[in-house]
Design a binder for these strands. Sequence first.
DNA 1: AGCCCTTTGTGAACCGATGCACAAAGTCAG
DNA 2: CTGACTTTGTGCATCGGTTCACAAAGGGCT
Lengths: 224, 224
Amino acid sequence: MSSSQPRDRGIPEATVARLPLYLRALHGMAERGVATVSSEDLAAAAGVNSAKLRKDLSHLGSYGTRGVGYDVEYLVYQISRELGLTQDWAVAIVGVGNLGRALANYGGFVSRGFRVAALVDADPEVVGDTIAGLNVEHIDELEAVIKRRGVSIVVLAIPAAAAQEVCDRVVAVGVTSILNFAPVVLSVPETVDVRKVDLSIELQILAFHEQRKAGGPLMAVDSQ
Amino acid sequence: MSSSQPRDRGIPEATVARLPLYLRALHGMAERGVATVSSEDLAAAAGVNSAKLRKDLSHLGSYGTRGVGYDVEYLVYQISRELGLTQDWAVAIVGVGNLGRALANYGGFVSRGFRVAALVDADPEVVGDTIAGLNVEHIDELEAVIKRRGVSIVVLAIPAAAAQEVCDRVVAVGVTSILNFAPVVLSVPETVDVRKVDLSIELQILAFHEQRKAGGPLMAVDSQ
DNA sequence: AGCCCTTTGTGAACCGATGCACAAAGTCAG
DNA sequence: CTGACTTTGTGCATCGGTTCACAAAGGGCT
Ligand SMILES: NC(=O)c1ccc[n+]([C@@H]2O[C@H](COP(=O)([O-])OP(=O)(O)OC[C@H]3O[C@@H](n4cnc5c(N)ncnc54)[C@H](O)[C@@H]3O)[C@@H](O)[C@H]2O)c1
Ligand SMILES: NC(=O)c1ccc[n+]([C@@H]2O[C@H](COP(=O)([O-])OP(=O)(O)OC[C@H]3O[C@@H](n4cnc5c(N)ncnc54)[C@H](O)[C@@H]3O)[C@@H](O)[C@H]2O)c1
């Protein structure tokens, strides 16, 4: 029992970040009626190296069959369980502007066990509106709404200037998972996970490489 | 001259990804009239380790003064130049749905040298509309629009099913930088840079850690 | 039943990134 | 001009992650 037990503890962060990728590929295969898949094929579908995929999966236990591959349905279940997608998660979106609206209307979350359970904004013009079937509530109600709806993940889609303050408030009511779109570094206790998405940074990284490609070969003229 | 020359080649990828972060912090400081900043302070503002920050900056050259710190204005310029933000980049957004609209209306790009130069969609209902002051053009015009406007970065905000096809088309006209929001692995020649943003993946990573926090200490009951 | 073929799971080398710790460089006060 | 103090820039140990390569495991064919 101590030898066949999956290594529940200590899944590398890099592996965790790839599991959703595998899951997506597996869902596609399940839909197409594929019963089993080799590490080679699944890796190709997820755009990674096959040895890496096997090592990743080995962290959750030995779910493959040598000579055959992995059972698609079973693997979907195991990865879902590992990621905690067998339960559903109540998400609150704070800030219902351009971005918040897009997120609220997006169907792709629900399909993965995430439920937008609340929309919150400060603008009296917006509060009370119905967006994606949800009533927009006032920021003053933030703490009450989070508790009432059992929200455990908060998405911040508000201006940078307001982000830290709202962040502090949701942390104070016990939220420990935050997805931040505002271009600021949030300071939180180390028990809280913050993931940030900054589109501007992505573009800047692309620009850097683009510049290299364009100027690279010619740069020699400049640096000589 | 060969010794004081900045190491133009071979800036680590991890460093490149942090430069925009430093730049953002520096812009804030410049606005507040700060003239010089120590690695310690800048690192704190960017949320990183100060040794890491110094090593990152050392890749672009020796722009600091020992005993004093870094000149804010000068550093802003050097990082901007390194990232290629001294020129402006024409960006096309393909797919003007929930997300595409939010991006088109977002002001945060322009301020960093990115100019939304074109909006493209397939839906006749949307084509011809004016969004954020731009005319939405038909997907049939994709290649022509990219060439005419000198677009060098393409943002894909279209359904997953359409992403690979559109991707192939923009690559065929010479685009080598793509920001992809669709939940698919795009296959491109290795000369092309694709960065992906997948909000669903971010939520899944948060869910994983959230589950750990909640179930971790109790998990023993289950696994015993 | 036995053999061959496929594919997993992992040991080990490798690689890039991180962070400590400190000498070298430079400032500034007196 | 000198000496004390501050802060950079980097050598080095370490760490997490990637990749190769292969022995062990299992399935299926004869
Ligand atoms: N729109 C994009 O494509 C995009 C891209 C990258 C980053 N961002 C970032 O995402 C955030 C939101 O962007 P947006 O374009 O949706 O902005 P927006 O101005 O359209 O919307 C912001 C919303 O937040 C609300 N708000 C302001 N202060 C609040 C507070 N204290 N509490 C609750 N709600 C508050 C406003 O009423 C508004 O509805 C910003 O930080 C922006 O920098 C947006
Ligand atoms: N909205 C979100 O918050 C969100 C979050 C995560 C991921 N995404 C992803 O971003 C993409 C866009 O999402 P959305 O919510 O804006 O979807 P959407 O359906 O609102 O918009 C998609 C737009 O793309 C257009 N389109 C479809 N096929 C096209 C083609 N071949 N060429 C040009 N245009 C085409 C449609 O006409 C539509 O206007 C999807 O792949 C989605 O999975 C969206």
